[in-house]
Design a protein around this nucleic acid. Sequence first.
DNA 1: TTGAAAGCGCTAACAG
DNA 2: CTGTTAGCGCTTTCAA
Lengths: 339, 339
Amino acid sequence: MKRVSQAKRKTIYDLAALAGTSASAVSAVLNGNWKKRRISSQLAEKIIRIADEQGYALNMQASVLRRDRSNIIGMIVPKYDNRYFGSIVERFEAMARERGLFPIITCTRRDPDLEIEAARAMLSYQVDCVIATGATDPDRITDLCAAAGVRTINLDLPGSHAPSVISDNFQGALELTRRVLANCERELGQNVPLMFVGGRGTDHNTSERVRGFRTAHHEIGITPEEDLILACGYAPEKAEQSLKVLAEKRGALPHGMFVNSTISLEGVIRWIRRSGHYSERKPQIGCFDFDPFVALLGENIEMVRQDVPKMLDAVFDIIDNRNPEQKLVEIMPIVETMA
Amino acid sequence: MKRVSQAKRKTIYDLAALAGTSASAVSAVLNGNWKKRRISSQLAEKIIRIADEQGYALNMQASVLRRDRSNIIGMIVPKYDNRYFGSIVERFEAMARERGLFPIITCTRRDPDLEIEAARAMLSYQVDCVIATGATDPDRITDLCAAAGVRTINLDLPGSHAPSVISDNFQGALELTRRVLANCERELGQNVPLMFVGGRGTDHNTSERVRGFRTAHHEIGITPEEDLILACGYAPEKAEQSLKVLAEKRGALPHGMFVNSTISLEGVIRWIRRSGHYSERKPQIGCFDFDPFVALLGENIEMVRQDVPKMLDAVFDIIDNRNPEQKLVEIMPIVETMA
DNA sequence: TTGAAAGCGCTAACAG
DNA sequence: CTGTTAGCGCTTTCAA
């Protein structure tokens, strides 16, 4: 991978020579802070014209090296394989660029070691700030960055050493569960408990969702049994396997279920197809996540969509110091209405 | 966004002072090229230990500024909202890191101006190479980069000024169309023409797929009418609208269809739901793209999955100069077998 | 209104 | 085996 080069890249010295002026004048003009230096607009125009003709491009490495702030902002993200993280990344990039920041993004595939390695790489690139999205060990990232004087913000999954922006998992799960319970009641003529599928029991989001799930049951006077709560991880295969085991153990499965993500839902639907379990009557499903194809899958699925625009607004409120004291911001997700 | 700082970051001079040696020794040791300098392993160990204790992180800006190669590699990508580009980005990142390259990725939302702006930003960060994925105007990117001595590779959509790695759109479409035609024949007892929905008629991939579509028809002795080819763009709404117009014009729609992407398929399925058009008998569908939820949508959908691992292998073959002469590499996509 | 010059942290040639 | 030194391209004071 050798640079084709020969054509050395132009520097401000080249431009200065061409314009018959100095490098500092060129620098000032090209940075837009030339009123302060009261450079004649004639010179300024000339410099800009020459820079243009020469196809000059600022060398950011040199610029950052000299300045105290890099204007580089990092984001760590677990996966690109679902709409939720996809839209987070896409919007983060756009918002960063709007503010004149340069975003660098690393996908760590839920691997804690990769997360740390990625954070270290970002520090080497002098990032001003890093957003740890859905990190398995956000506090370790925060501590590493703090040692270099770099702040972090947690997104999606909270940490205790840095401000966090997450969904209101309890309220969202409460509302979603209520709806699925109501759908079941409408269909069966009586209240029945649901099962809960997917997620890690140890993570904050899942435990809050389980709490919302339980609360909705209590509201109508029932208590879901413990073995109906399958916090079996995020992979589709895990969900499939858990359902299989539960079905073998109990025979019949509940008519309704709360599924913790589209990834888990993939496994659930696949198992339903393969096992033929719900062949006489389709189950009522609530999914804490959104995907447009899932919305087309059938009328028996309710979804809750995490409010990515609001979440990122909150993140940038913190970055821009508009929200100084908040430690935990919870954003209510959107309950999708059936088409 | 002010650095919390105070704690100045450690430099190799700090480490050198602590270790009682010189900055160049520290640099050599930390870069791993110290056999060449035959530094005593005692000193080396000491330096490494101290660097570790002090939480030293290399300043990449300084390092890149000094070296001739940055080891930074850029990728431009249109969207994060489907599995295809998601897996391209995820795998690209992993492969780049394996090779000691630092990936920077920019999502340009199919906006040609953003593509150029992104390329320019990458040049400022001294990238060694940029991959233009699904770019609307790849040659403009190539020319801009070439002027700075930076090479580019096109992925997904070809350009004529740089090597390109794309799917074998013709063969893939041919095979997919054959399957849908066969499914229709099996169901209806006779050969019928399909319609083609989605994509831009002007882009290389779409026109190759249309060619494959036509060829498969000719093989069984039929010619699809021109007005059944709806290259209406990639947005779901466009597909929906085109179907509506066609249905109004013709009354009945063909029993089978070739859909150019999952994004278009979203619009197709939605229209089918809303219009009730295929309510007596589900249509036979072939989709040139893959999504796991689509696979679960029903048994009447055939899919072709572009072979992302092979495509990226080809890209890195070019980067690593293992494939010097090739101008266009076409990778056969995978025909998914029905579950 | 402008230019000269110092130095950001690192690498690599050169001189011990 | 190790240290000294000269920049990489840019920003920013300071002096004119």
